[in-house]
């Protein structure tokens, strides 16, 4: 039994599961990354994912169209980001405190709105909602192995991949990206070069909100097809952790997000058997993130001590 479980980790099906699970974490990771690129801190990603997820599904219910729901979710993500921008940049509140506050009552707020519209406090299951489709790519789907991975994914997964590529190009190849990075590395230098630092910072927060909302909507509109309390389950934080480990390196960012997704997949595979205690198995991904973050920081600590890197 044990060997068959471990065996199943090396199948294409497992990889396909990892890909399916990676989308929200990748969205969260780039949400954290893009905000950090201009020097902003967005701790509220988990809450924006929740809000986006709820807004998406409720929007779909109210308009009868899943794509309209997607749009509404994006708007909610943008508005939340603007709220953070307003309070942290104009009104001088600490963005970390705002983030913690938002995360902490995200669930309450979501339940409040859910209750108003669906009369329920737990899930949106009672609402008939249109959801987003799975996409099968005709040519690719027949390729062995790769076909299973590249075709037949949820549409938001493909959107995620497109976002990852476009974001890379924007940040490293366009003037806008260079200016944003300048804001994050030395805001004063950017300012004297004539760049409107504040505007770019708000822009990066808006993008961050959009990506986070997309991550949430993947869960509610595509993957699970409902909204339920606590559905984000720490994936926003995993994205933030990935950005912390990456420290500006785009490749490491994506890799970390994928590794965390892999652990979630492992957790799911293990929980299907009775050998491992179900509660501990559920804790695997969190334990994995904990280990990776801790080890990464210990490595950084010793490298600074040896004089290999500049202290941040």
């Amino acid at each position: 039994m044990l060997s068959s479980i471990f065996g199943s980790l090396f199948t294409t099906r497992f990889l396909a599961t990892v890909i399916r699970l990676s989308t929200p974490i990748l969205f969260a990771a780039v949400a954290s990354f893009i905000a950090a690129s201009t020097g902003m801190v967005n701790i509220a990603i988990e809450s924006i994912m929740t809000f986006g997820a709820l807004a998406g599904i409720l929007g779909s219910y109210l308009t009868g169209n899943a794509w309209a729901g997607l749009l509404i979710g994006l708007v909610v993500g943008i508005l939340t980001a603007l709220l953070i921008a307003l309070f942290s940049m104009r009104l001088g509140a600490s963005p970390i405190l705002i983030g913690i506050a938002l995360n902490t009552f995200a669930d309450s707020l979501a339940i409040f709105f859910l209750y108003q519209i669906a009369g329920e406090k737990g899930t949106s299951a009672s609402l008939p909602t249109k959801t987003l489709p799975v996409v099968n790519i005709p040519g690719i789907q027949n390729i062995p192995v790769l076909g299973q991975l590249l075709s037949g994914q949820y549409v938001l997964t493909y959107i995620c991949w497109i976002v990852l590529i476009l974001l890379f190009i924007m940040i490293y190849k366009t003037p806008l990206g260079m200016r944003m990075r300048a804001c994050g590395l030395n805001a004063n230098a950017a300012r004297t070069a004539g760049i409107n630092v504040e505007k770019l910072q708000i822009f990066s927060l808006v993008l961050s909100g959009m990506f986070a909302a997309l991550g949430g909507m993947y869960l509610s509109l595509n993957y699970l097809r409902i909204f339920s309390k606590g559905m984000v389950a720490g994936q926003g934080w995993m994205g933030i952790a990935a950005n912390g480990i990456a420290n500006g390196n785009y490749g490491v960012l994506l890799l970390s997000a994928l590794i965390f997704s892999a652990f979630r997949a492992v957790s799911i595979v293990f929980s299907s058997s009775t050998i491992f205690p179900v509660d501990l198995v559920a804790a695997i991904p969190y334990f994995a993130v904990f280990c990776f973050v801790t080890i990464a920081s210990i490595i950084r600590y010793y490298r600074v001590k040896a004089g290999k890197v500049e202290e941040q």
């Binding site: 366009t174 200016r179 300048a182 004063n188």
Partner: peptide
């Protein structure tokens, strides 16, 4: 100095007035 240490000299100088080819630097 208003310089970005991890950028090259070129990038520091063109920042804000970048020569472009299409949408790219």
């Amino acid at each position: 100095f208003m310089l970005i240490n991890s950028f090259s000299i070129v990038d520091n100088i063109i920042l804000g007035d970048e020569p472009t080819s299409g949408a790219f630097i």
